[in-house]
Write a protein that binds this DNA or RNA. Structure first.
Lengths: 203, 203
DNA sequence: CAGACAATGTAAGCGCAGCTTACATTAATG
DNA sequence: CATTAATGTAAGCTGCGCTTACATTGTCTG
């Protein structure tokens, strides 16, 4: 009899393995070139097997993106909990998002700039957008107590636009194109985020 | 002899025809599903012909994107010329970009959110980024005369982050998610852009 | 003006990927 | 224990990016 344990016909958690391996691949090479076949092979399974767990390549990408969202938001919760005042919470949220995008640029691309968000965002991702929205809305409401909801919503949108836009441009290494002098990148980030937060607070 | 004019073996401007047809396709269906073969067929040419003019599918997409940039910047020049003061020029630039993205969402996706910009922006597109940068830098310099260049660059970056971020979120129809009340979309846009412009002017 | 040459098109095919269908194997259920 | 659903495999269809070899045509030069 063989010493090696025969690999079982049914495996423990193929779906999870695919998401994890897929996430590693995306982190290394980006989502564009991710192939269901190659991914299947890399986890040691036949080319058709993933389709038992994902209807589409798109569904697989969606699962990977959602996996990324859970990480992002657990980090965001930690930051929010350790903030002492609303302004600090807002700046922390912005810088936290920046850090996440910097640490996981390819994953962020899948989450925020892929076919999952175009032409309009995938319904399955809407819930996560609302969580992110709340992470800005609550502190801002606290910072600007007497402010009607419509105005608050606009300011949240403007703030999120700034944070998202800056993070995206930075991910593409376009900050050095705009700010050619040898300013420290972190300093530029801090200035930009605080500028946006202050604009949102004072209107 | 045939009444129809035989179609010539060599055509006038296949490259241009491919770019035009490609742009139409992208506008209608997005760049993701654009296929070189199908595009070749749609302009009545064999599947290999496009490769005489474009080394890659990517090179074709690049040409389509550049075609879009020329349109965007010619519109931007017109707006800039008709502005009466720097603040008006900045707001006009922002709203002009918004209009372009709203009118050409799929094309904007190719220009600003495709594999051409990821992981870092394609060198062939850098020139166009500089043009866009200048369209904000000059009016802002005029609006804030005594401001050193580094500070000016940071504010331009912050302003462009806001404009780009807002336009992108709006393209994904996420504005209605953030601002659920029946506020007119144009009103939200105007408020957001002016907010960003004022923040950039006063620091 | 003729022949060489470059430019630009076609025909055919390789390799790979998404996805489907038919079948095999195993776990769960009554 | 037999049945059934779940989950894997094998094989193949279709379409696409890209290459190579060849056909056609405009242009340049002796």
């Amino acid at each position: 009899m063989a010493i090696k344990a025969e690999k079982p016909y049914h495996r423990e958690d193929l779906r999870g393995d695919l998401v994890r391996a897929g996430r590693e691949y995306v982190a290394a090479n980006g989502y564009h070139s991710l192939s269901v076949r190659t991914l299947a092979q890399s986890v040691g399974v036949s080319p058709g097997a993933p389709y038992r767990h994902f209807s589409d390549r798109r569904a697989l990408l969606l699962a990977i993106a959602i996996d990324g969202y859970t990480d992002l938001f657990s980090a965001a919760r930690a930051i929010n909990a350790s903030a002492h005042d609303p302004e600090e919470a807002l700046i922390g949220a912005g810088l936290g998002y920046l850090e996440f995008v910097t640490a996981n640029p390819r994953l962020a691309e899948l989450m925020y700039e892929s076919e999952l968000t175009s032409p309009s965002i995938d319904p399955a991702l809407l819930e996560y957008q609302h969580i992110g929205q709340a992470a800005l809305t609550e502190p801002l409401r606290a910072a600007v107590p007497d402010c009607d909801e419509a105005e608050l919503a606009i300011r949240v949108l403007a703030l999120w636009s700034s944070i998202y836009g800056f993070a995206t441009l930075r991910k593409r290494q376009m900050v050095s194109e705009f700010v050619p002098h040898g300013l420290a990148s972190d300093e530029v980030a801090r200035r930009t985020i605080t500028l946006a937060v202050h604009a949102a607070i004072r209107g």
